[in-house]
Design a protein around this nucleic acid. Structure first.
Length: 335
DNA sequence: GCGACAG
DNA sequence: ATCTTGTCGC
């Protein structure tokens, strides 16, 4: 039963989303916060995570959200969680997080409750971090809401702040020699928004790496390279493969009941799965509305005395925003 | 009409 | 994101 696509949201909704992004952006930490991030060999890093959302072809609502955890440096799958979800928001460039993040947060939360020892120390996110229209892409969004270090990895250049996939850019790509080579992506304001990375020796198209949360750009690029067996970092690649497999096994086999759905060879069976995981599509979860999600984050952060003062105004604005009493935009630029 | 457009 | 076969290269 393929459901109909939601149209583009009204300007009013986009305005609320922009406010949400502006609020949460104040919580992004764009430097290394963990000891392993500064270690040359990432000593102390044992678990890397990846998330992805795959879609059902004729259906713009049904999707499979997946979270995988891999060992580091072996890059073997230790945990896999795939779940069918019903998307509520349409895809709008610049607002990807509002479509995908609620389900990914649910997956992280379930892992935190049921298998805390498997919690990844960093999450690779399919999409951009600070390399974004308003400096707050899906990798930042997921990072701030989960409080996990996150790395944004996009397969195509998001052309914002003067960045263009033009002849000069293509020439810089051509000059990348070996896997690990990269060049900075400088925005119009002179800020480095991310790096174009040749993820392995024989990759033509680069990856666009940017900071999501709690990690420096340098460490993000270095770790991304360290997690690439192929062009796409293994955590994201496994999340992608497994979510697509899940859809195929769940929806694509109905006409062939005699055949037992098989797992693709690229997807090795993980050691752990979430408890209660069913082969049937799970009931669609009910993510918090954007405003309440922000409120919950601020509520948690507010317990930390170091950030309480700085957040108090944002906390109030968030709560007021939820109630439909939005403060004027000027309130966000003061303080 | 033309170019942009993370996933 | 997804629609799609074969084909070229190691």
């Amino acid at each position: 039963m393929a459901r109909k696509a939601a149209g583009r949201p009204p300007e009013e909704t986009l305005s609320l989303w922009k406010r949400e992004q502006a609020l949460l952006k104040t919580l992004v930490v764009d430097r290394d916060t963990e000891a392993w991030q500064r270690d040359p060999a990432f000593s102390g890093l044992q678990r890397v995570g990846g998330v992805d959302v795959s879609f059902v072809k004729g259906d713009s609502v049904s999707a499979c959200a997946s979270l995988v955890v891999l060992s580091y440096p072996e890059l073997e799958v230790m945990y896999e969680d795939c779940r069918m979800v019903s998307l509520t928001a349409p895809y709008v460039s610049g607002f990807l997080a509002f479509r995908e993040v609620p389900f990914l947060v649910d997956a992280v939360q379930q892992l935190r409750e049921k298998e805390p020892r498997l919690m990844p120390q960093v999450l690779f996110v399919d999409g951009n971090g600070v390399l974004h229209h308003r400096g707050f892409g899906v990798a930042c969004h997921l990072g701030v809401v989960t409080d996990l270090p996150c790395i944004g990895v996009a397969k195509k250049l998001l052309q914002v702040d003067g960045l263009e996939n033009n002849a000069l850019h293509k020439e810089k790509i051509r000059l990348l020699k070996a896997g690990g080579d990269s060049f900075p992506l400088m925005g119009g304001s002179g800020t480095v928004l991310g790096m174009a990375l040749k993820s392995h020796d024989h990759s033509t198209k680069p990856l666009y790496v940017s900071v999501g949360h709690k990690m420096s750009l340098e460490a993000a690029v270095r770790l991304t390279h360290g997690c690439c067996k192929f062009r796409i970092p293994e955590p994201v690649r496994q999340a992608d493969i497994r979510s697509r497999d899940y859809i195929r096994r769940t929806l694509g086999v109905q006409g062939a009941p005699a055949l037992r759905p098989e797992r693709s060879k690229k997807a090795q069976r993980p050691k752990a799965c979430p408890q209660g995981a069913s082969e049937e599509p799970a009931a669609s979860s009910h993510p918090l509305p954007p405003g309440l999600l922000a409120a919950r984050v601020f509520q948690r952060r507010q317990r930390d005395p170091a950030t309480r003062k700085r957040l108090s105004w944002a906390w109030r604005a968030s709560v007021l925003g939820c109630a439909g009493f939005l403060a004027p935009a000027a309130a966000l630029t003061h303080h």
